[in-house]
Computed example of a mutant assay.
Amino acid sequence: MGTQHHGAMGLHPELAEMRDWLERTGSSSNSAIAVEGLILLAGIYAAISPWVIHFAAAEPNLTASNLIVGITVALIGFALTLAPDRMGRVAWMIAPLGLWLIISPWVVTAAHGARAGIIWSNCFVGAVTFLLGLAAMGLTVGLARRRNAHH
């Protein structure tokens, strides 16, 4: 009786879907997992950087920009880890967001300009985000090519 129950559960559609998902994520390369995780971390840093670098009160516009862009990048990175097949189309958004992080201290700060620490922080996290965005685009192109080769 236990064998019959186990066999019926093995055929359950949700279990089959979960097994397929685990196989897809398990077959993801270590580099893809690393890129997705680093995108998530870069987004988190960009979002909290106004408080880490201590410019949240002095530069409210840049604080809002970093918070919005950082959360967006982190959410894309998180979504890429959960559903790389479906989220590959939005990976291209990461690189332009990285470029925005680089130029935003000059675009959204007050007339007096941003402090050097703010500029360095944004340029660093922006450059890292941009490069990770390029890597994510490359990984999604490779994933699409592999998927098309199998069909």
Rank of each mutant, 00 (worst) to 15 (best):
residue 112 H to K: 15
residue 99 L to K: 05
residue 134 L to K: 04
residue 149 A to C: 05
residue 137 M to S: 07
residue 140 T to G: 04
residue 84 P to V: 02
residue 83 A to S: 12
residue 90 V to M: 05
residue 19 R to M: 07
residue 132 L to D: 02
residue 107 V to G: 05
residue 101 L to K: 00
residue 8 A to I: 14
residue 125 V to E: 13
residue 122 N to F: 04
residue 34 A to H: 08
residue 32 A to V: 06
residue 12 H to Q: 12
residue 135 A to K: 03
residue 43 G to N: 05
residue 134 L to I: 09
residue 66 N to R: 09
residue 88 G to F: 03
residue 53 I to H: 07
residue 150 H to W: 08
residue 21 W to N: 12
residue 142 G to S: 12
residue 31 S to K: 15
residue 130 F to S: 00
residue 143 L to P: 06
residue 83 A to V: 09
residue 52 V to D: 12
residue 106 W to M: 02
residue 33 I to K: 14
residue 83 A to M: 09
residue 83 A to G: 05
residue 151 H to W: 11
residue 139 L to G: 10
residue 137 M to R: 07
residue 40 L to S: 05
residue 100 W to N: 04
residue 144 A to V: 11
residue 91 A to I: 03
residue 28 S to D: 15
residue 96 P to T: 01
residue 72 T to L: 10
residue 94 I to Q: 03
residue 150 H to D: 13
residue 114 A to D: 08
residue 29 S to W: 13
residue 138 G to H: 10
residue 15 L to D: 14
residue 90 V to N: 03
residue 54 H to E: 13
residue 44 I to K: 03
residue 58 A to P: 00
residue 124 F to P: 02
residue 100 W to I: 01
residue 85 D to F: 00
residue 65 S to T: 13
residue 87 M to C: 01
residue 129 T to M: 00
residue 83 A to I: 07
residue 149 A to M: 08
residue 7 G to V: 10
residue 98 G to L: 01
residue 77 G to P: 00
residue 150 H to C: 11
residue 31 S to P: 04
residue 108 V to E: 11
residue 83 A to Q: 14
residue 114 A to F: 00
residue 99 L to Q: 07
residue 35 V to G: 01
residue 3 T to Q: 14
residue 24 R to F: 11
residue 95 A to K: 06
residue 142 G to T: 04
